[in-house]
Design a binder for these strands. Structure first.
Lengths: 203, 203
DNA sequence: TCTCCGTTATGATATACATCATAAACTCCC
DNA sequence: GGGAGTTTATGATGTATATCATAACGGAGA
C-alpha cells in the first residue's frame, strides 16, 4: 500500500462514493489509477441479458483498474461501490513519475499484478475444464488465503452463496446444492447460521 | 523485448527445448523468469481426467511465467515447447536487479502484465456468462489484434478449431458447429481451406 | 506410394447445470 | 414493528454443450 503523503505529493485526489455509485463503466477509457481508501468496490461484467460476473472486490489499501491503465485501453469491467467508500485517484503521468521515483512501490505494483494474474489464470482454467464443486473449492481456498485474516485454523467465510455464484459463473441454486454436497463429502462445514466454515486441514 | 546483451549481462542463460519438451509443470515453484528466443511455448492446465486448457502461446520476444515469479508462488500452469525452441532463463535476484537498474524495462514488464490481465479478465467473464459463439468471437478478436500482424483488412487465422476449443473451454465439435453458425450469420468467413477469415469491418 | 494421424464434419444421445416455481427464515429500514 | 428485500432451501423441468460414433480429406513421414 502506498502512503498517503506520497499520493498527495503526486497529485492524487480523493473521490467519495455512496453505496451503489458507479466509478467507471466497462468500455470507458482507463485514464486513472485507483486505490481504495475506505469502503468496498466491486468490479464486474454484465452480459446483454443482465447476468453479472464479479471480477473481484477491493477494500482499503487495494488498488484496482491498473491493467488497462498501463496498457492504455478501455476498462474490461465496471466498478461500483458496494458501500459508502472513498478512493484515491491518480492520473497517468503523475503515477508513472511516482513509479519512476520509487522503485519499491513499482515493484510492489508489479507483484500485485503478478498475484492477480495467477488468480485469474487459476479461475480461468477452473471455469474452462472443472465442474461446479471443484470451482467452488478453488475459489473458497483463494478467498480464505487472500481475503480473510487467516488467524485461527477455522475460517468463517463472509461471502454469501449469491456472491460465490457471481464469482464462479454459477447460479445461486447450484452453489447452494454444491456446498451442501461438499459438506456431505466433509470437504467443508456449514455452521448454525448457514455460513461456510473452512478448516486448515482441508487441503 | 529486452535486448540480449542486457540479458547476458544479468546472467541469463539459454535453454534449448525439442518439440514436446516440458519446461516446468503446474505446481512447480517459480524461481525463474523466461523469455522466448526462438520457437513457440504453450502454457496449459490439465484436469484430472486429462482435459486441457491452454492459457496461451508464446513466441519470440514474449516473456512468460512472470506472475508467480513475482508473487513467489507455484506456477498455475505447465509450459511445454510445441516446436523446437530456445528460451532465455534468468533468476529472481538477477532479474530484480535488472529491473531496478532499468526503469523503461520494468515499465515494459508492468505494461505486459497489464495487457495480459485485461485478456484474462475478458476471457474469464466470457466463460462465466457468455455462450459458445460469443466466447469464440471474443477470442478471435483478441487473436487477430494480438497474435497476428494485422496487415491487410482481411486476416486469415492460423489457429485450428481444436486450438480454439482448448483456449475457450469448449469441445472441438462445438467450435466447428459454432464457427459454421457464425459464418451463416455473416460474423466471419471460412475460406476454401476451411481457415477462419476475419475482416476489419466485422466489429 | 502407402500408412498414420490431425483436421473438419455431422448425426444421435447424454448430462450438468440453468431455469422456473415456491417458501421459510432473516435483516433492513421507514 | 411491519412490509420489503435478501438469503438459504428444494423440487420439477428445460437446454446448451458434451459425449460418442463415424467418416472423408490432406499432409507428413517411411
Amino acid at each position: 500500500m502506498i502512503n498517503e503523503a506520497l499520493l498527495t505529493q503526486y497529485h492524487a485526489t480523493v473521490v467519495s462514493l455512496n453505496k451503489g455509485d458507479v466509478l467507471f463503466q466497462q468500455g470507458d477509457s482507463a485514464t486513472s489509477f485507483y486505490i481504495v481508501k475506505t469502503g468496498k468496490i466491486k468490479m464486474s461484467n454484465y452480459s446483454e441479458d443482465g447476468r453479472e460476473f464479479v471480477q473481484g472486490y477491493f477494500t482499503a489499501g487495494q488498488s484496482f483498474g491498473e491493467p488497462p491503465f498501463f496498457s492504455k485501453g478501455p476498462y474490461p469491467a465496471s466498478a461500483a461501490a458496494t458501500e459508502k467508500s472513498e478512493v484515491w485517484k491518480i492520473g497517468y503521468n503523475d503515477f508513472l513519475q511516482l513509479l519512476k521515483d520509487n522503485f519499491p512501490i513499482h515493484l510492489e505494483i508489479t507483484k500485485t499484478l503478478g498475484t492477480r494474474l495467477v488468480y485469474k489464470s487459476t479461475m480461468l482454467s477452473e471455469l474452462a475444464i472443472e465442474e461446479a464443486e471443484h470451482r467452488l473449492l478453488t475459489l473458497i481456498r483463494h478467498l480464505v488465503d487472500h481475503e480473510h485474516l487467516r488467524t485461527q485454523k477455522q475460517v468463517i467465510l463472509s461471502f454469501t452463496r449469491q456472491q460465490l455464484a457471481d464469482m464462479t459463473g454459477l447460479r445461486v441454486e447450484t452453489v447452494i446444492r454444491s456446498i451442501k454436497s461438499l459438506e456431505h463429502k466433509r470437504q467443508l462445514k456449514i455452521d448454525n447460521d448457514g455460513k461456510i466454515v473452512w478448516s486448515q486441514n482441508e487441503k
